[in-house]
Design a binder for these strands. Structure first.
Lengths: 347, 347
DNA sequence: TTTTATAATGATAACGCTATCATAATGTTA
DNA sequence: TAACATTATGATAGCGTTATCATTATAAAA
């Protein structure tokens, strides 16, 4: 069977205008600043828009408006959960604002990135702005080079601004606080905590949130209950194992990410411990792993897609608004604890 | 510190033309159909392009060209690995071809989607084409409604065309064949296989690939070694456990996806079996899980991002080329076996 | 040579929208 | 009711490209 599909030309402003019996600009106004138009006219125009199933042509709009940005999203070995959410959020925001997205994948086979080379490459791409995601946003040499090269950038996942770059990040601290509080409310006092890699700024924030919650509830924090991991399953299994092997082990273990929590679960399994009745185990990030394993992991979810949206909007404002702006630090703190089966009230 | 960042206007064709001392159209030709231009001129123009660091304005190009499509990507509870790769692939292709991407997330809290409602919604969006990803592409009611509504669509992950819709899929069969062959080359003959949910068309393809490889090497396939799973960790753990508990268990187990393979690994662990020395376990998909667990999973990787690229290109050709086209079925068969630690040669 | 075909370049009008300034309709004040 | 302010609408010129047709340089044929 042979078919000839053809792009069906969609209605234009002009056609809508003719049908509504007004000028093209009036239709444009109805679509953009409707407060400049009389109610009667709005109604007529909307009827025409509806009748023709008119959709504005974003290309033409952005071109004519002259304020369309080309924004690069730069990433390096992100987890797919992180990447997909960033992309979804960024694409959504870009579509609304009429910007274009360019992906710049710096992932490699384990080698380090060269800030000099990367910056040069980005510069040649003629981008109007950049979203630098972790761990790149924590690479101060790269950040400095980007600053020197004059590309407006948002540092995603950092809280401290650098040069005139704004940051957008998650409130890891309050999320860790909330999760710890949740465990405390379940009756746990002896809570183990596995810290993530210290290079990541958010590792410290998560730990701080944990400590603050404990102090807030006047619970003594046993130093032996705090272990250093590196965000891998293996480190979770090892450090979790050590916690579980203590003479008086904690009744709950809070790992700084899901991979490590899964490792702790594996360690508990191999010791024939019942989860969550003998020990509660919770993670952080709500990755897919958390619902893939058994028992499914109680964890806390970051609104990554929102962070991306906010970053795009910030870039938009910074570049397109002529009001001078100070470098800002936006902290998104929608904390969502996902209660699954790996944590329960103490007996 | 207050800073005023401003979008720096980038060079236009006109400026390049002036600098090169030629007309604007000549520059455009150099950028597009360079075979119409004299070599001398090309050189001059390229120098100017380089000097001004000129980047074509995609918006203007697409608008003037009049062949920019708005393509919707429709998905329903995809794994993040799948989604991120689809997005990366689709975005890359769209950028090259000057198309726009619109995301349509049909994911929900477990409820079923209503083909009627979905189709209506998509129709109102004024999309020029659609990428329908699994499991939606296997929903024949939805496919039929989309066909009725006249939106050009590519069915991703299916091999049989339906109506005049083309498909783009992965060659699961040859991938499963290759993986089975790999196990056979390692000396395994008693190989267990865990099938995935039968609703998914690719489940059968993977099983077929396994069987074909066994037959190809004249190895008897023990019916008791073939188990039915449902792509979950839990089913892998259960079915894998049953295989391992057989009087003469298989020396290798091939699960139809990584989640199930991870389940098999858990089952082996709980029986104190050494992986891979007592039993080799392999998966399918190369999800993040496969490198998160221990031992890291030997698995096979789908070029999802490529599939997305191809789908976009196909849509492009189908809609924009006026050569009548038959509905086609593209099967991408780049098979990549990722060798990690969960499979070894038999002793 | 002169003619004719061909290769190379240029001029101009779209593409569908917004910005900007001009004009018409309405309301307000003296 | 004249004079002015205000609100509502329209006309026109871009935005940065490509399409299309016209023109000029160059090569081939007569």
């Amino acid at each position: 069977m042979e078919t000839k599909i053809l792009k069906k030309r969609s209605a234009t402003l002009k056609e809508v205008a003719e049908r509504a019996g007004v000028s093209l600009m009036t239709v444009s106004r109805v679509l953009n600043n409707r407060d400049l138009v009389k109610q009667d006219t709005i109604t007529k125009v909307e009827a025409a828009v509806e009748a023709l199933n008119y959709r504005p042509n974003i290309l033409a709009r952005s071109l004519a408006g002259g304020n369309s940005l080309v924004i690069g999203i730069v990433y390096h070995n992100p987890s797919s959960g992180y990447l997909s959410e960033i992309l979804v959020g960024a694409m959504t925001a870009c579509r609304e604002l009429g910007h274009q997205l360019v992906l710049e994948d710096l992932s490699d086979g384990g080698g380090d990135i060269d800030p000099e080379v990367v910056t040069h490459r980005l510069q040649k791409m003629g981008l109007d702005g950049l979203l630098l995601t972790p761990p790149l946003s924590a690479n101060s040499v790269l950040v400095q080079k980007l600053h020197d090269s004059n590309i407006p950038t948002i540092l995603v996942g950092r809280q401290k601004t650098q040069y005139d770059f704004s940051t957008v990040s998650f409130n890891d601290q309050s999320a860790a606080f909330a999760m710890t509080q949740y465990l405390i409310e379940l009756g746990h006092k002896d809570i183990g905590f596995i810290v993530g890699s210290i290079e990541q700024p958010f590792s410290g924030r998560r730990k701080d949130g944990f400590l603050q919650a404990m102090h807030h509830h006047n619970i003594y924090v046993n130093d032996a209950f705090i272990k250093q991991g590196d965000y891998t399953f293996k480190s979770g299994m090892e450090q979790g194992g050590e916690l579980l092997d203590l003479e008086n082990p904690p009744t709950a273990i809070f790992a700084s990410n899901d991979d490590m929590a899964a490792g702790v679960i594996a360690a508990a399994h191999s010791r024939n411990l019942d989860i969550p009745n003998s020990v509660s185990i919770v993670g952080f990030d709500d990755t897919e792993l958390s619902s893939a394993i058994w028992p499914a992991l109680t964890t806390v979810r970051q609104p990554i897609s929102n962070i991306a949206k906010n970053s795009i909007k910030l870039l938009h404002d910074n570049i397109l608004t002529d009001i001078p702006k100070a470098a800002s630090s936006t902290i998104i703190d929608t904390v969502e604890i996902i209660r699954r089966e790996s944590a329960a009230a103490i007996k």
